[in-house]
Amino acid sequence: MTSAISAHGLTLRFPVYGVDNRSLKKYLARIRVGGQLASWRGTTMVTALRNVSLELKAGDRLGIIGSNGSGKTTLLRTLAGAYIPDEGNLTVQGRVASLLDLSMGLDPSATGLENIRLRCLMVGMPSQMIEEKLPQIAEFSGLGAFLAMPLKTYSAGMQARLAFAASTAVEADILLMDEWIAVGDAEFQGSAHERLTSLVEKTRILVLASHSPDIIRTFCNKVIRMDGGRAGPIMPVDQLDA
């Protein structure tokens, strides 16, 4: 199966609601008084992506750079299918794995093992495959007997290990990542780095947003710069100036 991402003229606007606008009671009161309330703060529309186009095919490793608020994460979420663009069209072929928020969908009162299963189910893994992968994920997490304990009893570092081990067990054609992930103590960081690198090597298309030019140079072969929701042209990574 081919893997490709094709985006043409993506524009994404979203509403940001003021505090007052989150209350139905105040909303109705405003309608009754005809918008006369002085303290009313309305809805602001934010344009997070403006006319973004990009074409990626198998083998592409795209780095996204840009300052805070330039739309990097929004672009990743759009590619993941979480945000649906207002204009433009987007075709994504291949299985997408997003490593944007590792702790997605974890349940604090479920045990470590249950959370691994939950996380794998969430990314659409069939349950038979989960059972096959479970021992390997459990071993990698290095949590041993703690896996039978509820997640809320874990330290932050242990939770991060579990989330990392479970979410990097995916098999995907397209990998979306927001910053290079580094978790755990010194020893775990080493093996985590190794595991992530091998995942990146296996995947057909990588899209990685990062502030670090070094990370981009190491893992990417192409790069775009985002600024105020606009994306520059795709450049070879060696044209990336520090």
């Binding site: 993941a80 979480a82 997408v96 997003s98 702790s103 990314v123």
Partner: peptide, 9 residues
């Protein structure tokens, strides 16, 4: 929230 923001479930 967490799931809706990053995946097309």
């Amino acid at each position: 929230t967490g799931m809706l923001r990053q995946a097309a479930i």
